[in-house]
Design a binder for these strands. Structure first.
Lengths: 144, 144
DNA sequence: TTAATTAAAGAGTTCAATATCTTTAATTAT
DNA sequence: ATAATTAAAGATATTGAACTCTTTAATTAA
């Protein structure tokens, strides 16, 4: 469904959010460990999230990554997906046709339309705060 | 959503079905042309579909690919998707966790569950016959 | 039985995503 | 100032999907 980079990005940002809710910065090694992702690759993903202002980074001793408390509730899943994978997953044609539309539909257009709309709505309405509190509650997990 | 191979496979089998409904065999070059896919790659995909008995192939003059008329109504989208992409798309975790379940859910498990179920149901209930007749009706298209 | 036509099979290539490694820059503590 | 710590940046490597090419096998028609 999503690229690996996108999966790691979502897992990372959720973990950083849980830490930020406890006013703790976290380093990329700790993040990679907690979300069970390759260290160096995670670092690259964090750079991208940081450059796009979804997270803040601080170098040096006691540095690491964090998210502003006000910001956590304002980041929605679709923003992260858009950044890493674009909108192809919930806008593109199910059969990969470049020109597929209501006016010129592929054979599965009507069937996929429903799925795409559900997915799009879900990504637009799910924010990082609720996912982070899920982790904090202990009912949801970022790794085995 | 699906791999390119899977997309081409679905497009191919729909086109072969429309031809078979007119009792015409079609060669891989014609198929590739009609679905706007690379020729050699399409040939490989057809081999796989053929080996797995979704289509029949005949070599030599007037050879090509076809589907038995009775069979067309009995092939469902999920069978093709399973063959090329496995069941990961509608069974796997949205965040790529190996162990994600109702008992040990990832943060987006509940949200994705709905999408996955919709997708799964759609793939289980959509068959090649209805898609092929859509093409024949002129209301749906396999390429621009 | 030869030539033409068609798919099958297997090896090889290309490319983008995934992942790693090394060097540089910023920050803090001593 | 120096050392330690942390992320940024850029180059490199690996892998698997996407795609191609060449040879072989089967079938049919002349």
């Amino acid at each position: 469904m999503f690229s690996k980079a996108c999966e790691y990005a979502i897992r990372s940002i959720i973990f950083i959010a849980t830490s930020s809710l406890e006013e703790k910065r976290v380093g990329f090694k700790e993040i990679a460990e907690e979300i069970d992702a390759p260290e160096a690759f995670t670092a690259k993903i964090l750079q991208k999230l940081s450059k796009n202002n979804f997270i803040q980074s601080t170098r040096g001793v006691n540095g690491g990554f964090e998210i502003g408390l006000e910001q956590i509730k304002n980041i929605y899943l679709h923003e992260i997906v858009d950044l890493f994978d674009g909108d192809r997953i919930y806008k593109g044609c199910g059969l990969g046709l470049a020109k597929c539309s209501n006016e010129h539909p592929c054979p599965v257009h009507d069937q996929f339309k429903i799925i795409r709309e559900k997915l799009s709505q879900m990504l637009q309405t799910t924010n990082i705060y609720e996912l982070a509190t899920g982790i904090k509650s202990g009912n949801y997990f970022l790794r085995t």
